[in-house]
C-alpha cells in the first residue's frame, strides 16, 4: 500500500533522510517513531508531494508519488503536525465548501458528509464558530476531520493527538483503531503509549534511517528483557555501585528514589540482588518485576 525505497533528502549540509526504505501493509496501522529531528516529518512531506526527494521513490496504492499524471493525493488524507486553517472560516464552511469540494464531494452529499465528520470528530457544537478562536486541540480535531472527509484509503497522520487532552486523545485513538482494515494509516508520534495501543507495526527511525520495523507484538516480545524496579528509602547510592558490578545487570537508570535495572535473567538477578539488600540492611519500599514498555525499547534502540 505504501512503499518507500531509498528516500534520501538533504537540507544544506544536514542529511534529513538517509536511504530510508519501508513498507506499510494494506489496512494496517503503522506507528512511525523517532526522536525529534529523526526525519518523520520530512518523510511525510515527501509522501504528500510537498517536497521532493534528492533520491529514492515512493508508491502509494501502486502509484508513484510526485509523478505528473499519477496524482496520489486524491486518495490520501493528511494531517500535518500543526494543521493551519483560514481563520475567517467556520469548520462547517471549511469542510463543506472547501476541503470536500476539492475532493469532488459537493452538493447535498457534501453537506451530509461535513455534518457526519463534524459529529465524528466532536466538533458539531463548534461547527459554526470561527476557526480563528479555536484552541490547538480543536484545530487538531478539525485537521483530522479534513483528512477524513473523503474517506481516504491512506491516512498520513503527523502527531495526531499531541495537542489533545487525555479524553480527546482516547477518542481520536479509538477512531484510528476503528479505521483498521478499511484504511492504511501511517502515524507518526512521540507518544509511545499511543503507538503501543493502536499500531500493528512499528517502525523506528533515527538520524534519517529506519533502524527497526517489526510487528508491535513481536517487537515487545523480542525486546522484552525484564526490568526490576526498586523504590528506596535509603542506601540507593551504595546499592547502585554494587549492582553495577553484577554481570546479570545490563543497564541501570535512576530517577529520584527509584532504580530501574534491565537484567538478562530475572531469577539470577533476584538471587543476587535480594540477599545484597538484606545483608546491607537497605530499606526498600518496593521491589517489583515489570515488563518493559515501548518507551524502554525505543530509548534502547535510539540511544547514541
Amino acid at each position: 500500500m505504501i512503499k518507500i525505497e531509498n528516500y534520501t533528502k538533504k537540507y544544506g549540509s544536514i542529511l534529513a533522510l538517509d536511504e530510508l526504505s519501508l513498507e506499510v501493509e494494506t489496512g494496517s496501522v503503522y506507528g512511525f517513531l523517532g526522536p525529534n529531528g529523526a526525519g518523520k516529518t520530512t518523510t511525510m512531506r515527501l509522501l504528500t508531494g510537498l517536497a521532493k526527494p534528492d533520491n529514492g521513490k515512493a508508491w502509494i496504492m501502486g502509484k508513484q508519488v510526485g509523478i505528473a499524471g499519477e496524482d496520489t493525493r486524491s486518495f490520501i488524507g493528511v494531517l500535518p503536525e500543526e494543521p493551519a486553517f483560514y481563520t475567517w472560516m467556520t469548520p462547517r464552511e471549511y469542510l463543506r465548501d472547501y476541503a470536500g469540494p476539492l475532493f469532488g464531494i459537493t452538493g447535498q452529499a457534501g453537506v451530509k458528509r461535513a455534518d457526519e465528520i463534524l459529529e465524528l470528530t466532536g466538533l458539531s457544537d463548534a461547527a459554526n464558530r470561527r476557526i480563528g478562536g479555536f484552541s490547538r486541540g480543536m484545530r487538531q480535531r478539525l485537521g483530522l476531520a479534513q483528512a477524513l472527509i473523503h474517506e481516504p484509503h491512506v491516512l498520513l497522520l503527523d502527531e495526531p493527538v499531541s495537542a489533545l487532552d487525555p479524553a480527546g486523545r482516547k477518542e481520536v485513538l479509538d477512531l484510528i483503531v476503528s479505521l483498521r482494515g478499511t484504511a492504511t494509516v501511517l502515524l507518526s508520534t512521540h507518544i509511545l503509549g499511543d503507538v503501543e495501543r493502536v499500531c500493528d507495526v512499528i517502525g523506528i527511525i533515527n538520524k534519517g534511517k529506519l533502524i527497526l520495523q517489526e510487528r508491535s507484538d513481536a517487537l515487545m516480545n523480542r525486546y522484552a528483557l525484564p526490568l526490576i524496579e526498586i523504590d528506596f528509602d535509603q542506601g540507593l547510592e551504595g546499592f547502585v555501585q554494587f549492582a553495577e558490578k553484577i554481570p546479570v545487570v545490563e543497564k541501570i537508570t535512576c530517577e529520584n528514589s527509584t532504580v530501574r535495572l534491565l537484567v538478562k535473567e530475572i531469577e539470577q538477578a533476584q538471587k543476587e540482588l535480594i540477599p545484597a539488600l538484606a545483608n546491607d540492611g537497605i530499606l526498600v519500599r518496593r521491589f517489583q518485576i515489570v515488563q518493559p514498555s515501548l518507551e524502554d525499547i525505543f530509548l534502547r534502540l535510539t540511544e547514541v
Partner: peptide, 13 residues
C-alpha cells in the same frame, strides 16, 4: 508562512 498552503497542496490541487 502560516501553513495553509501545505494543507491545500496535499489535496488534489
Amino acid at each position: 508562512e502560516r501553513g495553509t498552503a501545505a494543507m491545500m497542496l496535499v489535496k488534489p490541487v
